[in-house]
Design a protein around this nucleic acid. Sequence first.
RNA 1: GGAAGAGUGCCCGAGUGGCUAAAGGGGGCGGACUGUAAAUCCGCUGGCGUACGCCUACGUUGGUUCGAAUCCAACCUCUUCCA
Length: 426
Amino acid sequence: MTQQTESRPVGTFRSRFMQEAEARGFVFQCTDAAALDAAMLAGPVCGYIGFDPTADSLHVGSATQIMLLRLLQKHGHRPVALLGGGTAKIGDPSFREEARSLMSEDTIATNIAGIERSLRQMMTFGDGPSDAILANNADWLDKLSYIDLLREVGVHFSVNRMLSFDSVRSRLEREQGLTFLEFNYSILQSYDFRELNRRYGVTLQMGGSDQWGNIVSGIDLVRRTDSKQVFGLTAPLLTTASGAKMGKSAKGAVWLSADKLPVFEYWQFWRNTEDADVGRFLKLFTDLPVEECDRLGAFEGADINEAKKILATEATALCHGRAAAEEAAETARRVFVSGQSAASLPTRTLPRADLQTGFPAFRLFAEAGLASSNGEARRLIRGGGARLNDAQITDEGQVISLADAVDGALKLSSGRKHHILVRPEG
RNA sequence: GGAAGAGUGCCCGAGUGGCUAAAGGGGGCGGACUGUAAAUCCGCUGGCGUACGCCUACGUUGGUUCGAAUCCAACCUCUUCCA
């Protein structure tokens, strides 16, 4: 059972990091919170979070973790972002429906490169006392010897105990199978913690609540082999007020990389936050003062839309820069408030010659990426959800060409919220 | 190594020879209502073609049959029990 390990009354922290982390809703579980609090008061603490390179970009689900690292940095502590280049070769079995397919070295390398970009955008890296450090566990895991690992680390792990962790047990109970390979993930993650402690003096591992078991294992390992006390802190698993998991949107995952999700769409994701989540998300995903977040989140009715715009712009600014965020906000204002087109809507270019000839409406929607297949585009049009320059398209075979362009672009819309500009190439 | 069971569409899950592109639910998309929210209601939800249509799909490969997701064989994977 993942138990709360501390029984400290709320609001008793003395270190600024812990106070703010708690006030903003980042703290779910913490090992020996009082001692961690004291350590933070005594001086800079080095804390890390691991990111698995399972895709070439992180998504909003990971944003919480990055915000935690930022918070650490903000209060003079030192954040370490650990990329799981080594562990990615195994796959974390925690709460997974089934085994993850194994990734090739190449895939892992490109994924790491993509993730690194987002991390660098959101934190300051360098050699200063509170500059962030980027590490890759492939640096030490790759050359581990199996026998040595078993002798030196394996002896400290109780299988009985590992089986009792929720993360493992849920897999077993579902009769879904758990290979020995995956079963080792937790051991390697523990090894990471110890290695980071030895290399950089890392004494805190943070993560999502699904990482509790792995984190505690690491703490035990460090205590047993190096006789040092290190800490763990988990953030709550984020769901929206209506119970859905965070991070899904029209187009699937909400990626942090602009290559995978246009900034405008990212802004829109936050803009469409449920009313009840606004205050909570402001605290988690922006740098605005807590009191301001509470004030904005308390708006009622339509007024809260203003708070959502602030949330969207602030959250987007952290991830894509202030200028891009303002631009997305302005684009949204034009599209939704004035009902105009805007030059900074996501744009798709198609060969000029093809556009001159024209496409049947359904094909154009598919080509532009507003529908994933011709069939889907047809359904969209039949359902009355497709528009060209804000006029509903009724005939799926209607030929649309450059002649229909306004200001050199065709504005296509799927529903009220998804707009794209199609421009000729060259 | 032996025995029993399971593998269905994005997910869960029904289906045990034709009426099955495959019930139902979830998710997703669109519409209505709103506040670019939630809740609710309605429609759509494999691909290709304007279309009568064609193609792909029920773990894999073969077979039986006019016809198979459904029957048979082998194989693969997983689960449980035994050694």
